[in-house]
Write a protein that binds this DNA or RNA. Structure first.
Lengths: 337, 337
DNA sequence: TTCAACCCGACAATCGATTGCAACATATTT
DNA sequence: AAATATGTTGCAATCGATTGTCGGGTTGAA
């Protein structure tokens, strides 16, 4: 009994079959014309010798990879980990959507130190398309790259005149919803927890300020540029409570993660939520329903957002244009306000 | 002013520089000897024309990709989504570890329909190494693949005689810890929520049974093969409570996700946790601290586990052998028992 | 029988970068 | 000035699969 020895490339298999590599390629791929007889014969041989065409070589020749990169630029926030609940939630949904459509997902975190990190990545030719999560403070770079490169979709805020395709929710409206809700709950001294360097967060803040302005100037929120990373935000907030005498009665957090840190830190300082301070988060991550007290928050539908991004990207890979999508955020009232 | 036009391959740049492609390659990579002068000249030209070497071509030639695949076989549990909290937690930590070491992470979900899915993936040559999450019911396949392929590490249970490298915690011990804890809390009628088709879960069950046996035969647990996927487990458990008269006073859940579903379903049926039923989970995911009541669970240190897997894999890519690692699980007592 | 039509499979170019080897130029030594 | 040493660069093969083109063979009709 001859053990069916491993065949490593198409040429070897062609040798065994007594044909050329080209014929083997056509037989296995089904493209081009090969007689039924030799096709079957070659298929059987391929099976027997456990031959698999090398993906790299195929990709190089066909100039497509069947992969999509999810790129996470940690612009203003280098320490943030991929294990962050927000990233994980959206990546999970993207992974579900992409694998469903037969794309591999390449996950890549980038520290944007030069101003051409995005072009550099794109031209490395690793993937057929790129999804960028979080414009952070890199919006112009996205815009520039998008001019020469179609299959690019970003998660994040939309601003008038932007030329890249983004999917996200209306951060300005979300911020306003949050602020209005706190005012309706009777808050007078409102703090904003989040660093407005990032576009999305700035938009939330502006929405917040705008809504408060309509209730009179005394509502101008005080801004604390808390980090987004869970560990750092814990620290930031603890420091804040220890050293700063300021005690707000309402907090708009720029993300659920920040809100959770705040809840925990306040509990340690024996400040009651929602009795002494009301807190509203942003995102409505799965964890928001499971904190104690359960988090009032502004919901972005990440599952649907991920679906939309995949859909846009697939169209763009196929050469179509797609418009940006702005989803409506929604106020979810739970126990923390 | 000449616009620095895009150069698409190394040959074009070589033309511009008046040298050959080989020289350009050497100049940019730093390997081999090129005079300082031409090196600088070529570097400057590359910069100016925004040239980036094509990754695919390089990978094909050098036979390495700088990428690691995280492969998730959904063996007995095809519906399970990648957005599952367990996967997301461990993938996040893996991503952190791999990007730290300069590897890209390819995320791939596979439905193992043929018996050679793993070999097929490996030989496609997409990645330098593979991390498999969850042996599920595919342990023999891992074992077979590992015989011819070094850079393979799996998350999951260890069993005597296995020949692939795995990292995981002692599931038998974990199951025993859980059972003992419930007995100590006074539980008499214990149920096990989880499908023992998967190796890890079977081991947990066996540990559980073994521990209970030591307390007398009447403790034999009743087994409910609940699905791992959050949506399905909700359904399973609701059905169970509606149709089956059985009311345990203690539940060992095979995962935190199942435990959370159980907590929610019980609440809907006005059954108090921990008053009427005590529940213990498994994994200690971040969410376990945020359910209400906070979940007693068996902790597997996923962050450390991910670190170990990356470390093993990197060694194996370099050609070293590594032994399997069995970590000690730990009982974390919170409020659900 | 002859010519056209048609199908199959071989041949070779191609994707883009890397690298061993050979050839050449310059610097050093005798 | 000749010979050796040292250092640069060019040349061409290579990684492995895909694909356009062309020649040889078979079939059918006139």
């Amino acid at each position: 009994m001859t053990k069916p020895k491993q065949v490593k490339n198409i040429a070897e298999l062609a040798d065994i079959a007594g044909v050329t590599a080209g014929t083997v390629s056509r037989a296995l791929s089904g493209k081009g014309f090969v007689s039924e007889k030799t096709r079957e014969r070659i298929r059987a041989l391929a099976q027997k010798h456990r031959f698999r065409p090398n993906t790299l070589a195929r990709n190089l020749r066909t100039q497509r990879t069947g992969a999509v990169t999810v790129l996470i630029p940690l612009g203003h926030e280098q320490a943030q980990h991929l294990s962050d609940p927000f990233f994980m939630t959206i990546i999970g949904h993207l992974a579900d959507g992409l694998t469903e459509r037969g794309y591999e997902l390449i996950l890549s975190k980038i520290i944007p130190n030069s101003d051409d990190w995005l072009e550099a990545y794109i031209e490395s030719g690793r993937a057929d398309g790129v999804i960028v999560i979080g414009q952070s403070d890199q919006a112009e770079i996205l815009d520039r790259a998008a001019k020469n490169y179609l299959p690019l979709v970003a998660w994040g805020g939309y601003y008038p005149g932007q030329s890249h395709c983004s999917v996200g929710s209306d951060n300005f409206l979300g911020g306003a919803l949050a602020a209005n809700h706190l005012v309706e709950q009777g808050c007078k001294k409102i703090a904003f927890f989040g660093d407005p360097v990032a576009l999305e967060i700035r938009q939330r803040l502006e929405g917040c300020q705008d809504a408060l302005a309509k209730h009179g100037a005394k509502y101008e929120p005080r801004i604390f540029p808390i980090h987004l990373d869970a560990e750092l935000s814990d620290e930031d907030i603890s420091n804040l409570l220890d050293t700063d005498g300021f005690r707000p009665d309402g907090i708009v957090a720029a993300s659920d993660v920040i809100a959770m840190s705040a809840v925990a830190a306040l509990a340690e300082h024996d400040i009651d939520v929602p009795g002494d301070v009301k807190i509203i988060g942003y995102d409505d991550l799965p964890i928001a329903t499971q904190t104690s007290p359960r988090l009032t928050t502004i919901r972005q539908d990440l599952k649907d957002g991920a679906r939309q991004m995949v859909e846009c990207l697939v169209k763009r890979i196929a050469g179509e244009e797609t418009a940006s999508i702005v989803m409506k955020p929604e106020l979810i009232v739970r126990r923390s306000t």
